[in-house]
Nucleic acid binder design. Structure first.
Lengths: 338, 338
DNA sequence: CATCTTTGTTTCATCGATGAAATGCCACGA
DNA sequence: TCGTGGCATTTCATCGATGAAACAAAGATG
């Protein structure tokens, strides 16, 4: 029987149950020494009044808010919503709610996140920067409970959970080379961002593999795509298909680009993988249901989410050893697009 | 110059600036009567100490937390992450952060959301229920600042923002009929959920259109899919393609199912739309980049997000008129899959 | 020049839950 | 019988920001 829960406090509940607010608190936080009979009485009163804990009050006293912030570029990118999904699930184990902030990959907004301007007072921050990079370490000050995701952007004293971008990109490219492809293009380069961003690291992996195999990488085959949306993949692929010397394979820096690229290929009647092979990166759920199913890099998203949340939890619980840098295992998932 | 922001309070900032905590508060909340010179001094002190407002304390005093909760079944479904993306953007205008809760479409979890057990004390709730339905109105008690999305599930006194599910589904089906299709199947039915859930309403629209046209709807052409994930769409389509009397069109109850279905068609060498036409529902970004591009219902997601947030804001700001029920405009987006 | 406004700042109490410590009660052993 | 210790509950102060109202100083008004 739940009543109007206007402004019911622990004191109100206590009054009804014949105890003090403090005892109500004890009951609700499972303090060991509460008589079972009292516990029942209090819980009944809680129910009757429709009492809900005021998290602001608790937060003020305890210094914990019970929520963490996840800051990512854009929920519209499959990889990020998959990541968000998993971070939320993992956070539940620690009793945390998750506030999601979209930075739009804008430097200004990313700075706001670090400074706290655009962030609720939360117990911690899991942050995948995009526009920030080395040299921005000074903006980290005051963010002790922070885990950086994705790129090893900062040298400062921060925990990092990263995928092995370069190695995985090299692996993907090597696979294409091993299949006999020679004119291998890349989609997703972005000269505007830092040299340790995902875009740059994946490009490096691609270049390494090509160089090791003695294959050429003419500039027109390395297509810039700033946004990594479906649309950008399609545009890039259309461009590649129009080249005089058409590539026989494309390595896309994420699956979203790859799916856009597959679309462009199909629209132009170009057969994949016969005429052009396509490899992606991220292994998002949609990759498996693309046509043809997308060969891609599995970066260990689940592992990333879990590690990030656990690492943050450890920090919040007072772990003070030096910041760690964790690389997840990645692997190539071979499907039919390459 | 940002320093260790351990536990800096307004009082500390005030001490440095030579004013009271109250004046600091005035500065930070843009109170009109503060001398410019004082304002500068305070802001400098804020910067110097790396002060960050304690939102718990503010929340305790003002009764506002500055965040709202968005409860949806699963961020893994394209429609929902698109919705989340937009809700976050709209909420920014009102200065709200958004906490996202995934219910997994589980009744138990949905009840926890309403009761507040699984929800931070937030300024309001935008909730798309799935397993709850008529008869569960009693669980609404105590949730005054609430906007229900999607299905007109409750008769109780709550604001609703809904799409015209039945009408839109009828429209989609009528379009297929108008293109000369007669053996039209449906994917996404779910007998387990309430009669006013999206699944049921869309099925009704489909059935209405078929009946009006005098077309048969044998049970084997109405495929159950409880989850509405890519996988379910693929499985359902595979099933349909194996029928003795193969359908010449499919209406999928969402785009994710439709994209899964397209995949199954392609894997079986069945040409779309020549051999079988496919229509989806939701017009998610991926629909446009499916192959062939997906004909689908545009349900006005942007409008839904905006209305929901604005309606909630109005309630929070004390609007007290009777709850409203808003239906968004939907339309058919014709592409090449049908 | 005394009074009334306006402007800028301060004082004080308060929001609701919890940490620390005190209290009352009962059981138990010597 | 008295002390000792454990259990259950209470008392009290406190976290940090803000609403209400008081206050001081500077201008406006007659």
């Amino acid at each position: 029987m739940t009543g109007k829960s206007a402004n019911v406090t622990m004191a109100d509940v206590g009054a009804l149950a014949g105890v003090t607010a403090r005892t109500v608190s004890n009951v609700l936080s499972n303090h060991p020494s509460v008589r079972p009979e009292t516990r029942d009485r209090v819980l009944r009163a809680v129910d009757q009044l429709g009492y809900r804990m005021n998290t602001s009050a608790r937060g003020l006293k305890t210094g914990r808010t019970g929520s963490i912030t996840l800051a990512i570029p854009d929920l519209g990118i499959d990889y990020f919503n998959e990541l968000a999904r998993r971070v939320i699930v993992e956070s539940e184990r620690h009793g945390w709610s998750v506030v999601i902030q979209q930075t739009g990959a804008r430097r200004e907004t990313e700075l706001d996140i670090l400074s706290g301007a655009r962030r609720q007072h939360s117990d911690g921050l899991i942050f995948q920067p995009h526009a920030l990079g080395p040299g921005d370490e000074k903006h980290l000050t005051g963010n002790d409970r922070l885990v950086i995701l994705g790129d090893r952007i900062f040298n400062g004293p921060v925990d990092h959970v990263a995928m092995a971008n370069t190695d995985a990109a090299r692996l993907a490219t090597q696979y294409l080379i091993g299949r006999g492809r020679t004119r291998i293009a890349a989609i997703g380069s972005n000269p505007g961002v830092s040299t340790i961003s995902a875009a740059s690291l994946r490009l490096q992996g691609y270049l390494q593999a090509m160089q090791e195999a003695g294959l050429p990488t003419p500039p027109e085959r390395i297509v810039v795509a700033e946004e990594w949306h479906l649309r950008d993949g399609a545009v890039a692929m259309t461009h590649l298909l129009r080249l005089d010397e058409r590539p026989d394979a494309v390595f896309c820096f994420n699956d979203t680009l790859a799916i856009g690229a597959l679309h462009a290929a199909a629209m132009n009647g170009v057969r994949v993988p016969d005429e052009i092979a396509v490899v992606g990166f991220d292994n998002v759920p949609a990759a498996q249901y693309a046509f043809p199913p997308l060969t891609t890099i599995e970066p260990g998203t689940e592992q990333i989410a879990k590690m990030a949340v656990d690492l943050l939890a450890a920090r919040v619980n007072g772990r003070t050893d030096p910041p760690r840098e964790i690389f997840t295992d990645s692997s190539l998932v071979v499907r039919r697009s390459a």
